[in-house]
Design a protein around this nucleic acid. Structure first.
Lengths: 188, 188
DNA sequence: CTTAAACGTTGCCCTAAGTCAACGTTTTTA
DNA sequence: TAAAAACGTTGACTTAGGGCAACGTTTAAG
C-alpha cells in the first residue's frame, strides 16, 4: 500500500528503520474525482503524498476564472504549501482531480519528522529547493514566450501535464484561454 | 561593518556566540555599479547578504532581451540559487545594480553552517520557504492581470522595486515592454 | 437510460500590448 | 567637460490572443 512512498524514500538512501518510522506517520486517504481537500478559507494542516491519482492547486480570481499553480502526479508530494507553512488561510484550493489514493501526514507530525530525522529534514529542504527552482523556471520559461512557445515548453519540461489534465485546467496553468490552448495544440 | 547581518540574525533569536561564529564566515566585498558577480556560464559558489546597495538576478533571451527574476535590497540574501544548489552553470546573471557592499560566504562554508548550526539551517529553510511563497505569489499575482494591474500589484507588494530600479529593469521584471510600463505609470 | 450540464474546437471580431521611431534627458566615457 | 551611448516618454501602427457564440462530444446526474 505504501510501496510508492517506500520507493521514494529508498531513492533518497534512507535506512529501513527510519523509513518504517516515517511511514508510520502517514495514513491512507481515498478521494473522489474533483474532491476538495483544502478549501479557500481553510488553513492547511496536512501534507500529501500521491500514491495514485493527481492533485491540483488552484485559485479563482474575481472574474470567476480558475488559475492553476501546480499539479502533483504519482510519487510526488503536494499541499497548499504557503498556508501549510504560515498557517494562514490558503486563499487557494487543493483538489484531487482524479479518483486518488493519498498518503497523508499532519503538519504536526511532518514538522516532528523534520526536526527529529535529519534525512527527512533534507527531503523537505529538497522539496523546497525543487519547488523554488521549478517556480523560477516557470517564471523564466513563460515570460517573453508566446502561446505556442509556452505549450512547446510545457510539453518538453512537463510532458505528463497536457496528457493527464483537461484542456481547461492546462490552459489555466499556462495562463491562456482554453480556446487559445486548443488552437495551439492544433498547430502542433 | 556587519551590523545589518548581526541585526538580521538577532531578529531570528540566535544567541550571540553563534552569531559571532556565523559572521566569521562572511567576508566583505565592495562592488561597482553594474558589476557582474555570477556570469551566464559560471557555476555559483557564493551566497550574498546585501549590506548596502542592490543585487539583481536576470537572464537574456535569444532575442537579446533581459528578463529580471529577483531584486535583493539591503538586509536580504541573494544569489543565483538554482546554480548554487545544483552546481550547474547558472544560465543567468547575478549583478550588483548599484555600488554595493556585500557580505559573502562560500558555498562550502554556507552548507557547513547549515549542517552544524540548526538555527542557520532554519534560516536557510526560511529563505527557501519565502522564496517559494514569493514565486507562487508572483505567478498568481501576474497571471490574468493586465499591465496596469501588474504595476499596481507590484507597488502594493514590493513598493521599493519601482523606486529603486530603472524603468527598463522593472519592465523586464514585470514582463512588459519599457514603453508599456512607462504608459502605465502615467495612468497612475 | 435519458436528460442536462460541462467541455473542446473553431470562426469572427476586437482590444491590450508590442514594435518602431522620434525626441529630449540622463548617464557614461574619454 | 565634451561627445557618445543609454534611457524614458510618447505617438502611430500592427498583431497576438481574448471574448463570444455555435456546434458537436463527453461527462455527470436523476
Amino acid at each position: 500500500m505504501y510501496k510508492s512512498l517506500v520507493l521514494f524514500l529508498e531513492s533518497k538512501n534512507i535506512e529501513e528503520t527510519k523509513i518504517k518510522t516515517i511511514c508510520s506517520f502517514f495514513k491512507l486517504k481515498k478521494t473522489n474525482r474533483n474532491q476538495i481537500l483544502v478549501d479557500y478559507n481553510e488553513v492547511c494542516q496536512h501534507y500529501y503524498f500521491v500514491n495514485k491519482g493527481c492533485l491540483r492547486i488552484f485559485t479563482i480570481n474575481k472574474e470567476g476564472l480558475e488559475n492553476s499553480r501546480y499539479f502533483a502526479f504519482e510519487g510526488n508530494f503536494g499541499t497548499a504549501l504557503p498556508s501549510f507553512i504560515d498557517q494562514k488561510p490558503a486563499l487557494e484550493y487543493l483538489q484531487a482531480i482524479e479518483k486518488s489514493e493519498l498518503l497523508v501526514i499532519t503538519r504536526h507530525d511532518f514538522y516532528f519528522l523534520v526536526h527529529s530525522i535529519p534525512e527527512f529534514s533534507a527531503i523537505y529542504r529538497e522539496i523546497l529547493e525543487l519547488g523554488f527552482i521549478n517556480a523560477q523556471q516557470r517564471i523564466y520559461g513563460f515570460q517573453g514566450l508566446d502561446a505556442l512557445e509556452k505549450v512547446s515548453w510545457t510539453i518538453k519540461n512537463n510532458p505528463k501535464l497536457l496528457l493527464r489534465v483537461s484542456n481547461k485546467m492546462a490552459a489555466s496553468y499556462l495562463g491562456m484561454s482554453p480556446s487559445t490552448l486548443s488552437r495551439m495544440k492544433s498547430k502542433l
